[in-house]
Design a protein around this nucleic acid. Structure first.
Lengths: 236, 236
DNA sequence: CGTTTTCTAAATCTTTAGATCTAGTACTTA
DNA sequence: TAAGTACTAGATCTAAAGATTTAGAAAACG
């Protein structure tokens, strides 16, 4: 699956504050005919300027650097909007590191302790536009991912002990929807083609049902219960 | 890595509306000494009652069922809060299906077209508490996952063209913070130990800086810019 | 068919909210 | 020291917002 000889080599930049390690990787990669390391960077700032300048195909980014943390570095590089693909390289297989790296756009994640064949395989996969995450790390990722989702769900569930929005009538929902856009009673009346007094009637009923005292509190309640999402869904 | 003979077999329930297919899986699994299929279910409702009753170790869930969709089914089962682990089983490798299944807590995802060894391997991994996602599907997952994250980022970035909140003074931020709790001017005055007219002065300045006309709009602006998060961070 | 909801709307009144202008004090900075 | 900024606060208005009561018409429900 390697590229044919007549194609230009895949250009790689290695970012690692440990010079020996970076050199090791460089030699390892340069043994491969399909790849060439065009630069090394010992810190994030140098790395970013090199990446801007050479726009490499792949960046091998060490995450465990003292000054700037590698996660932020990946984020910075991704912001540049280049075609450059980033593979995270680290000594630790911590689930949250893997999660964060992949979340912000890393195309691969490998451990320094892994065999060199893994590194080359990662380069192969990623240079073809695929994601490379060894199954062990994939497991770790999902540990964190699913835990995060569970927490989110638990959080939302805690919020809807009782969703008073369910007691609103259709019309009241419409009125509340306009209130959550910061529209005045007069504006609501015009948009719904009803009188302002009718709007006030609806609003008062809404206040009672939501157990609040004014529009601001009603809007806050609605937003906390995810009302805006519901409203957007209706419009679409 | 299989369980020793003296351990009880891992109990599996197969959910598939296609009877032939379900039978095939059943026979395949029953060939393994470590597993036994204790029930088949042809639709989601039956499946859920069986799962409640027998609390199997693993559920093999077909996602492509006509009546209820399998994603919802997984979600329902997860809500039960059992130790039961779910492996999604489907004919298609659509990225969004994989993403959604894993997001709501599936412990594995395999294709019907995959070799039977894959199925057994998935059972082995998942019964040991690990996640099983073949690398092809893992790639698909990340395609969707990273695209979703990118969209989220783009969405947030679009919002911060300019954050007018940055122009607020400390006191104005405090006042706005209280407004976002739905507190009245009089209440704000009491909490900050200043007069109500002072509050009004601050609020008017806030309106001008945020380019809004009333408190509701100010609160909405603040929330959209993530003001509440900032406020909570300050408190903590 | 009667009852209940929902949506509509008016009248009336009190209370906030919001706009505007002025102004004193304190602190910072050129 | 003069100028600017932030915080304070008063007076004075107008315009909304909110509370409350009553009530008609249409639809839904038992």
């Amino acid at each position: 699956m390697r590229r044919a000889d007549f194609k230009r080599k895949t250009r790689v930049i290695v970012v690692d504050d440990n010079y020996d390690h970076a050199s090791g990787i460089r030699e390892l990669i340069n043994l491969e005919q399909d790849y060439e390391v065009i630069a090394n960077a010992g810190n994030v700032n140098v790395a970013i300027s090199l990446i801007k300048k050479y726009q490499p195909d792949i960046v091998l980014m060490d995450i465990n650097m003292p000054e700037t943390d590698g996660i932020t570095a990946i984020s910075e590089i991704e912001k540049l909007g280049l075609k450059t693909r980033i593979i995270a390289l680290t000594g630790y297989d911590e689930a949250d590191l893997i999660y964060r790296a992949m979340k912000i756009g890393a195309k691969g994640y490998i451990l320094k302790t892994m065999a060199s064949a893994q590194l080359i395989r990662a380069l192969d996969e990623v240079s073809m536009g695929k994601i490379y995450l060894p199954s062990v790390l994939c497991s770790k990722f999902f540990e964190y991912f699913q835990a995060a989702e569970r927490n989110e769900k638990a959080y939302n569930a805690a919020e809807d002990e009782e969703n008073l929005l369910n007691y609103l009538t259709n019309r009241e929902e419409e009125v509340l929807g306009l209130l959550t856009e910061g529209i005045t009673y007069k504006g609501v009346a015009q948009q719904l083609f009803i009188s302002e007094t009718t709007v006030k009637t609806h609003v008062n009923n809404i206040f009672q049902k939501l157990q609040v005292n004014d529009r601001t509190q009603a809007v806050l309640y609605a937003i906390n219960k995810g009302f805006s999402a519901k409203k957007k869904a209706k419009i679409a």
